[in-house]
Write a protein that binds this DNA or RNA. Structure first.
Ligand SMILES: [Mn+2]
Ligand SMILES: [Mn+2]
Ligand SMILES: [Mn+2]
Ligand SMILES: [Mn+2]
Lengths: 270, 270
DNA sequence: TTTTTATATTAGTCTTATCTAAAAATTGAT
DNA sequence: ATCAATTTTTAGATAAGACTAATATAAAAA
């Protein structure tokens, strides 16, 4: 049986690979708040178990099997976050911590029922894509705010679970699907001057914060690019069956320019 | 921090005390499917931690502190079971196993939100009382079917989490609030002949099964006995606030003759 | 290319939770 | 009250996960 600890290792490695950071023992150790030596040890065990490839001194990469498990946990995590927000009224900043524990405790049945209840959602409260039951993920076409040029943007995604940080962003009005102008980037690694569409007060966001925020230009790119890709891909039967009275959940984020990607063999399960 | 394992020990001891069985090492070992020696060891640790009193060779009793923790887990377990049934559409027989894991993973916040969402329920899907946030429990006035005399009864409670057994009872129509007649008890530890109010076919229920089923006479006892005790006790504010659109959950089991009991110092928290 | 610095691995220890086998205490039956 | 049967406890081992300190390797500087 795969322990909670192993699930967390695999998920962390997956996220590290997604960011194209190297899954070195030190990187993973920092993310998991354990000693480097602990990770070395675990990498050896996980390799023996066939969940990752590991070359001493060169870090690890997930095997297909390891990746599938990681994707399963990631799916759970994100569905649970959305559930906490939509059904139990959790705040944006509160969902991550709770999901971090629940993701290891729920059954397959629970996850699939959640998926139904939430009407097969595509994104979690932070704008992150929810993998489907087979481990497929839509691909986000957003860019990092820290690298964006001045212009009009819609906020798409925030890559952090830190409650302090998320509360801060919320206070600044920086939540997914909100629009703003990036007025300028101040020199010498300075903050970004932005202007929310709703209010008129200009705000300044530090570069470190901006690195965790992803956006798309507003208005969207030429019509040509928006073909079928714009709607969430049909996956499985989406019968009215079981869709309970949580109508407000419906507002599927169709604004988002996502594209379903079956490609990338390494990412493709089985 | 209290581990999952410790939580399970405490909950199991509480349930054992509730049934006025002795919390001997062997009883607890059987319930938890571990070796007797393991329990001896754990009892010693738990005593050192102040969670129970333990006299070698004479079994354990929970301290106030241990009892409070056990009641907290029991509350979680039962609220989660009801949630699984009412919100995620789990079957009667499926809820226990899932709750057994989730009870160790959810936060206080989660539990209180569930309580709101379910509109402060009093009983779980098996008819067991849900302790309130302070650990108080309504007292059930039901009797064991195995000891009942022929007559008219309403089923109130089933003390089992075993899916096989629960599915069996469900097929036989023996679920909480269903009515039936106990026609006779066959001699020599024989089965009970019962007749459901709805259908006409007589059914036979083994004595072992009957021991896990609790009932109250139908119609209820003289009007005199039914005073204020009949409605679920006011606990905390029960504002309309937060009561979401799960109207079907409303049907609070007011039929049940429960009585709120603040008494029993040993059971009274703090 | 050698030396220094940063990173990673190995070795040895600890804690929690579990087991089996042997010894001790209690219970029940003469 | 004594002996036999049952139950419980002690002792010794194991496995997972983690830590610290010491050692080895790789990368960067000189
Ligand atoms: Mn998260
Ligand atoms: Mn986690
Ligand atoms: Mn249960
Ligand atoms: Mn449990």
């Amino acid at each position: 049986m795969i322990s909670i600890v192993v699930e967390n290792y695999l998920k962390t490695i997956l996220k590290t690979e997604d960011q194209s950071r190297k899954a070195s023992t030190s990187n993973i150790a920092r993310d998991l708040s354990v000693a480097d030596a602990t990770v070395t040890d675990m990498f050896q065990k996980l390799q023996k178990a066939g969940l990752l490839e590991y070359k001493p001194y060169y870090g690890a990469t997930l095997t297909k099997q390891g990746r599938m498990i990681a994707l399963k946990i990631l799916r759970r995590h994100r569905l649970i976050e959305l559930f906490l927000q939509k059904v139990l009224g959790y705040g944006w900043a509160e969902v991550h911590e709770e999901a971090e524990k629940l993701e290891h405790a729920v059954s397959e049945l629970f996850v699939e029922r959640l998926d139904q209840l939430l009407n097969f959602p595509v994104k979690d409260p932070h704008g992150e894509v929810i993998p489907d039951a087979q481990g497929f993920r839509a691909t986000l076409e957003d860019i990092c705010l820290a690298e964006a040029k001045p212009g009009e943007y819609t906020l798409r995604r925030v890559t952090s679970g830190d409650p302090e940080f998320l509360s801060y962003l919320e206070r600044e009005g920086l939540v997914p699907s909100n629009r703003f102008s990036l007025v300028e980037k101040l020199p010498f690694q300075g903050p970004l001057k932005i202007m929310l569409k709703s209010s008129e007060a200009p705000r300044f966001i530090g570069l470190e914060a901006a690195r965790k925020v992803y956006v798309t230009p507003t208005p969207p790119l030429a019509e040509g690019r928006r073909k079928a890709a714009d709607h969430p891909p049909a996956r499985g039967r989406r019968k009215a069956v079981g869709r309970r009275q949580l109508a407000e959940i419906e507002r599927r984020d169709t604004l988002l320019s996502t594209r379903h990607e079956f490609a990338r063999a390494s990412q493709h399960p089985a």
